[in-house]
Amino acid sequence: MTVRIAAVGDIVLQQPETEKLFEPSSAILRAADVAIGQIEVPHTTSTETTGITVPSPPAEPEALRAMAQAGFNVGTTAGNHAFDLGTKGVVDTIESAAAYGIATTGTGANLAAAAAPVVTSVRGRTVGVLSYNCVGPRESWATSLKAGAAYVKVITHYELDDANPGNPPTVYTFCDKTSLRAMTDQIAALAERADVVVVALHKGIGHTPAVIADYEFEVARAAVDAGAGMVVGHHAHIMRGIEVYRGAPIFHGLGNFVTVTDALTPDADNDSEELRAWAKRRRELYGFEPDPTMPAYPFHPESRNTAIAVIDVDEENRVRPAFIPCWIDEQARPTPLTRGEGDSVVAYIEGISRAAGLMTSFSWAEDGKAVVVS
């Protein structure tokens, strides 16, 4: 019997009445045996800020009820905001998700707990899920004595190709071997006891659709080599390319799903100096302004192209990857699209995949409800 696993990108629930934002997609998510979403920010009553850049404000613990009601039963939590609200933020998020039936992986009271997988049995098979943060900051990392996220440390090297000081350097990124080995050892151990392993990686260059950094290929392919049957990425808040490596799909970035917040829209009267500075720097780095008609969705206009990743696992544990294209509508609702209405989203995903050097094939399934990836 086939087991279906669905996964989406970042979920941010920092506005009221988020239940309605899942309405267009909930039937698809509930139909999956395992539905995985990235819980991007801490859900806690704590207001103690520990972030060093622009920390996320807390989301209401009760907001996770909407995520559960939509059909999610697994939440990945390793990410750059994991420790923004300290140990209480980490623990409250895990406990609140569990209270609504969402099992989490990626954060914990210490590194061993953060690296513990979710393992669930469905239709006589076991599905294991692991979650790792690849984008820092260092303060987000768990240790043997500190709460936080499971992680892979990434090193950035800048090389000036000529002798002209101040010229733009060539940037090289690669994984620290010790933390990469810790990840692959954990995946291999999980693959020994699970029929299919899904690995979630918080990675990528923010708000940048087509560029996939060197380390992203390294860490994602290492996960597959260690036994992952599916790799899903998030963090960039915009769709990124898709590849198939050794038969396993790598969704390098699933972009936004339900992401509603006012934390990224500066208010001259109320917001911090750091947030105003970040809004200015965001314009300089990424060259976009959010749509002023969607104040709760302060992201790149192209990020409204998104997708639900889907794999069907057959009786012999062979994986058939696909995705369901979605468009984030004016109410910030990810809305699944079928053949015809979703062609522009598929063309967008194929375009950014090609721009990243990926020669993946995309074709509509016979029922016109999903795009098969090969």
Rank of each mutant, 00 (worst) to 15 (best):
P290C: 03
V54T: 14
H300I: 01
V91I: 14
L130Q: 15
G37I: 00
I250C: 05
A322I: 03
C134V: 01
Q331G: 09
G86N: 03
T18P: 02
P301S: 00
E60K: 14
T208R: 14
A115L: 05
V313P: 00
A147Q: 11
F217R: 12
H234Y: 10
P165K: 08
P165A: 12
S56I: 00
D312S: 11
I212L: 15
G241C: 11
T2M: 13
A66T: 02
R125G: 07
T338N: 13
T18S: 10
G206H: 13
Y158M: 13
Q14S: 14
A370H: 06
I311E: 08
V198H: 04
A59V: 00
Q186M: 04
D161Q: 12
A279C: 09
L111W: 13
T126N: 04
A332F: 08
N317R: 10
F22K: 07
A103T: 08
V260I: 01
H202M: 03
T120Y: 01
V197A: 09
E274W: 02
P249C: 10
T107G: 02
E302Y: 03
H207Q: 12
T18I: 09
Y158K: 15
D185K: 13
G233P: 10
R193Q: 15
V372C: 09
R304S: 02
V196S: 13
M359H: 14
E274R: 13
D84I: 06
K203Q: 15
T87L: 06
E62D: 11
V12Y: 05
A59E: 03
T178L: 05
L29Y: 02
V119A: 11
C326I: 05
A147G: 12
R246L: 08
S353E: 03
D214R: 03
T170K: 15
N164E: 14
T293V: 02
G75R: 02
V127K: 09
R30Y: 09
T265Y: 05
V319A: 10
A222H: 10
G241L: 10
G86L: 04
